[in-house]
Amino acid sequence: MPLLTLKAQVHADPETERILRDAMFCATKVYNGLMWHLRQELKEKGKVDLRRSTLNRTLKTLPRAKGYYSLSVQLTRDEVIQAYRSFFALKKN
């Protein structure tokens, strides 16, 4: 499978740049936090519940949960679901 790498540079005023960096930090923390919880659940129970409602409950337990951008959290949550499903689809093959 070929990979495509995109490079981009954003030119913004300091306030906009701060907001963008914070949003990216949010997405990274949400992604890593959810993946950690899913790996723990798999290790403990042998299966994972990937429903949005379950992941939303998990999101509330993450550090800084109230400070995250909601749209960033929602999109990252959906990316985690797809990434986890893709991982297990590839693992089966």
Rank of each mutant, 00 (worst) to 15 (best):
residue 1 M to C: 14
residue 1 M to Y: 08
residue 2 P to M: 07
residue 2 P to W: 02
residue 3 L to H: 07
residue 3 L to K: 05
residue 3 L to D: 08
residue 4 L to P: 04
residue 5 T to S: 07
residue 5 T to Y: 09
residue 5 T to K: 14
residue 6 L to H: 07
residue 7 K to N: 10
residue 8 A to D: 09
residue 9 Q to D: 07
residue 9 Q to I: 14
residue 9 Q to M: 15
residue 11 H to S: 13
residue 12 A to S: 07
residue 12 A to G: 06
residue 12 A to H: 05
residue 13 D to K: 07
residue 13 D to M: 05
residue 14 P to R: 05
residue 17 E to R: 13
residue 18 R to Y: 03
residue 19 I to E: 08
residue 19 I to M: 10
residue 19 I to S: 05
residue 20 L to P: 01
residue 20 L to D: 06
residue 21 R to E: 05
residue 23 A to P: 03
residue 23 A to Y: 09
residue 24 M to I: 15
residue 26 C to S: 11
residue 26 C to T: 15
residue 27 A to M: 10
residue 28 T to E: 10
residue 29 K to G: 05
residue 30 V to P: 00
residue 30 V to I: 09
residue 30 V to F: 01
residue 31 Y to G: 03
residue 33 G to V: 02
residue 33 G to W: 00
residue 33 G to T: 02
residue 34 L to Q: 01
residue 34 L to T: 01
residue 34 L to C: 04
residue 37 H to T: 10
residue 38 L to Q: 00
residue 40 Q to W: 03
residue 41 E to H: 04
residue 43 K to Y: 14
residue 43 K to N: 11
residue 44 E to D: 13
residue 46 G to M: 01
residue 46 G to E: 05
residue 47 K to D: 02
residue 48 V to F: 03
residue 48 V to Y: 01
residue 49 D to F: 01
residue 49 D to T: 05
residue 50 L to E: 04
residue 53 S to G: 13
residue 53 S to P: 03
residue 54 T to N: 11
residue 54 T to V: 15
residue 54 T to S: 11
residue 55 L to M: 03
residue 55 L to S: 01
residue 56 N to G: 10
residue 56 N to L: 10
residue 59 L to K: 09
residue 59 L to I: 02
residue 60 K to M: 06
residue 60 K to G: 07
residue 60 K to Y: 06
residue 62 L to Q: 03
residue 63 P to I: 02
residue 64 R to D: 12
residue 64 R to I: 04
residue 64 R to C: 07
residue 67 G to V: 07
residue 68 Y to N: 01
residue 68 Y to Q: 00
residue 69 Y to I: 06
residue 69 Y to P: 01
residue 70 S to W: 08
residue 70 S to C: 06
residue 70 S to I: 06
residue 70 S to V: 06
residue 71 L to P: 02
residue 71 L to C: 07
residue 71 L to N: 13
residue 72 S to Q: 09
residue 72 S to E: 09
residue 72 S to G: 14
residue 73 V to Y: 00
residue 73 V to N: 00
residue 74 Q to D: 06
residue 75 L to S: 10
residue 76 T to C: 03
residue 76 T to Q: 00
residue 78 D to A: 04
residue 79 E to K: 11
residue 80 V to M: 00
residue 81 I to H: 02
residue 82 Q to G: 14
residue 83 A to K: 12
residue 83 A to V: 08
residue 84 Y to C: 08
residue 86 S to R: 13
residue 86 S to F: 08
residue 87 F to V: 05
residue 87 F to I: 06
residue 89 A to D: 12
residue 90 L to G: 10
residue 91 K to H: 12
residue 92 K to D: 13
residue 92 K to A: 15
residue 93 N to I: 13
